[in-house]
């Protein structure tokens, strides 16, 4: 393999199978950064995403108002349009909603909820997927066949339907009130359980190749247990693939959460995510107050677009299956 980046086609949706694991490259990080500096689109996406992550991490610093502090909102300010429309002002740059809440602030707090669920769900999917993939690939035989059968069954269903189903089950178990309180956790579980298969397949492929290598035999001879070999020797080889899948999955995860919240099965309006904000705003669309729904929608679009652009870049830059 050459030292240079693969002459990859920026838009070819190559599959991430990780069948041939990438060699350990100490220079990978440096290459990534210089590649990012050369690719303008990816650079812009990275900067935008970094800003959004910062705003979500420190909402109190970025948001002009504390939208959940009842003393700071007044019905007198309801339905103020964005600043570039007649009647708007810089007091509320993106306008206000039906209760006089600043939409920019609501979006920043909503971003926090959306990203919490997205990142949490991806993290859960990674843990489940990598564990199952390592076990299946390393053990082989009946265990492997059984686990991959489960993965196949799950793959026949779109992730969003599985997430909706898990939400329905949680509703039947917990009841409406308890579920509403645990909404963030329920959604993280729904996103995590509906998205682990991709990771498991990639990791399994790599583990099956690695376990036949000499160094694994050497490690076994020197008394390292199966778990040790998996974590210390095989895991580092699949991390690149997991990172690429994870970035692409994050976009999907945020969309799943937003969709569930929009149809009323996700985060309740008391602690709104971007999807919830759009759902709430949707009821004012027909009466002309379009910004209440459209502004959070644009924020969501920018977030997912930035993640997908970055995911495309990472996939092409790190794709272990070089052409």
């Amino acid at each position: 393999m050459s030292m240079a980046l693969p002459p990859s086609d920026p838009d070819t949706p190559a599959q991430i199978t990780a069948a041939a694991p990438a060699p350990r490259r100490r220079w990978a990080n440096g290459l990534l950064v210089s590649g990012l500096l050369r690719d303008k689109t990816a650079l812009v996406a990275a900067v935008v995403l970094a800003l959004l992550l910062l705003a979500a991490a420190f909402p109190a610093f970025f948001a002009p108002y504390q939208v959940f502090d009842l003393r700071q909102i007044s019905l007198m300010n309801a339905f103020v349009p964005p600043v570039w429309i007649d009647g708007g002002s810089w007091t509320f740059p993106l306008g206000t909603d039906d209760q006089g809440r600043d939409i920019l602030s609501a979006i920043i707090y909503g971003l926090r909820v959306s990203l919490t669920v997205g990142l949490g769900g991806v993290a859960l999917a990674v843990v489940i997927g990598v564990t199952i993939g390592l076990i299946a690939g390393f053990t082989g035989g009946i265990v492997d066949a059984a686990l991959m059968r489960v993965a196949d069954v799950q793959l026949t269903f779109p992730a969003i339907l599985i997430a909706v189903m898990i939400d329905g089950v949680s509703r039947a178990i917990l009841g409406d009130t308890a579920r509403a309180e645990a909404a963030v956790v329920v959604l993280i579980i729904a996103v995590g359980l509906s998205g682990w298969v991709e990771y498991a397949r990639a990791v399994r492929g790599a583990a099956m190749v690695e376990r036949r290598r000499d160094y694994v035999a050497a490690a076994r001879l020197s008394g390292v247990g199966s778990a040790g070999i998996m974590v210390r020797h095989i895991l580092p080889n699949v991390l690149t693939a997991v990172m690429v899948i994870g970035t692409i999955h994050l976009g999907v995860a945020i969309l799943i959460e937003a969709t569930l919240s929009f149809v009323g099965l996700g985060i309740p309006p008391t602690q709104p995510s971007l999807g919830t904000l759009i759902r709430v705003g949707n009821s004012y669309l027909l009466s002309g107050e379009w910004w209440i729904a459209i502004m959070p929608g644009i924020a969501l679009l920018i977030l997912v677009l930035a993640i997908n652009l970055l995911g495309d870049f990472l996939r092409d830059a790190l794709n272990p299956r070089l052409r």
């Binding site: 929009f262 149809v263 759009i278 929608g297 969501l300 679009l301 997912v304 677009l305 997908n308």
Partner: peptide, 11 residues
């Protein structure tokens, strides 16, 4: 691919 389906509908 990035735009949420429900947002397409709303717009």
């Amino acid at each position: 691919i990035s735009v949420p389906t429900f947002f397409v509908g709303i717009v």
